[in-house]
């Protein structure tokens, strides 16, 4: 049978409310437990000490809203940084591949030249679009200030941060897709030792874009978790 421990139940509720940031939830749980046990220890022999300590600590969802205000902004900043790092990573991989083609004096068939004539400018402009979107996203994120408590309007601001990063990620996926197709055609006629560097560079680009998409998915899930604190 489960032992009745109001403090443990309270801590569970607090950790659940802080589900938008699991690392923060673990830390706050430890701190809150220390506080509550200390408060109870200050009232030896009082039957009501646990209940009073919990009541004095406050509503878990109200506390979580205070944590959400700055925790989600820090996450948005990390997301903006992630978008910039993904851009830099993809750009570096792209440049490494081009340098390799020049070093090996890679020649193209007429068909591939015609394909590149369309693909390369498309790729370049899509990359510039991704860069512009990432700069706008970072500027927007940097101009946000965390309020004392998470509220609906602030939630919408944070959602805009994620949408801007998602738009940059969408453009980056376009870049990676175009380059994968162009490089795939190029490598289909190549021998493997020479094709290794371009193949690795494409894998690095896919990894960068994939990491950004994963980060955006996580940010959306955490934002939804924080938004649930405003309901009910």
């Amino acid at each position: 049978m489960r032992r009745c421990d109001p403090i443990a139940d309270y801590l569970d509720a607090l950790a659940r409310a802080l589900g938008f940031d699991p690392a923060l939830a673990r830390r706050v749980r430890l701190e809150a437990e220390d506080h509550l046990r200390e408060a109870v220890a200050q009232e030896p022999g009082s039957a009501d000490a646990e209940r009073r300590a919990i009541a004095n600590f406050g509503d878990p969802r109200a506390l979580a809203r205070q944590y959400a205000a700055f925790s989600l902004l820090a996450q948005a900043r990390r997301l903006g940084l992630g978008a910039v790092l993904a851009l830099v990573g993809i750009f570096a991989a792209m440049k490494a591949r081009i340098a390799w083609y020049e070093f090996t004096q890679w020649t193209l068939s007429d068909d591939l030249k015609a394909m590149n004539a369309i693909g390369v400018p498309l790729d370049r402009y899509t990359f510039l679009l991704a860069l512009a979107l990432a700069i706008i996203a970072c500027g927007y994120i940097a101009s946000r200030r965390a309020p004392v408590e998470f509220h609906g309007g602030y939630g919408r601001e944070l959602k805009r941060c994620v949408i801007l990063c998602a738009a940059a990620a969408g453009a980056l996926l376009g870049v990676v897709g175009t380059e994968t197709v162009l490089t795939g055609f190029r490598l289909s006629a190549a021998e493997w030792p020479a094709a290794a560097i371009p193949a690795l560079s494409i894998a690095a680009e896919i990894a960068c874009a994939g990491a950004l998409v994963w980060q955006i998915r996580l940010a959306l899930r955490r934002a939804a978790c924080a938004a649930s604190l405003l309901r009910g």
Partner: peptide, 25 residues
Amino acid sequence: PEGTVYPVLHRLEQKGLLGSRWTRA
């Protein structure tokens, strides 16, 4: 409400105005 001080401590730490470390009571 005692719990409200903890988000403030965390926020001030994030701003670099406070430092913190774990100890054992």
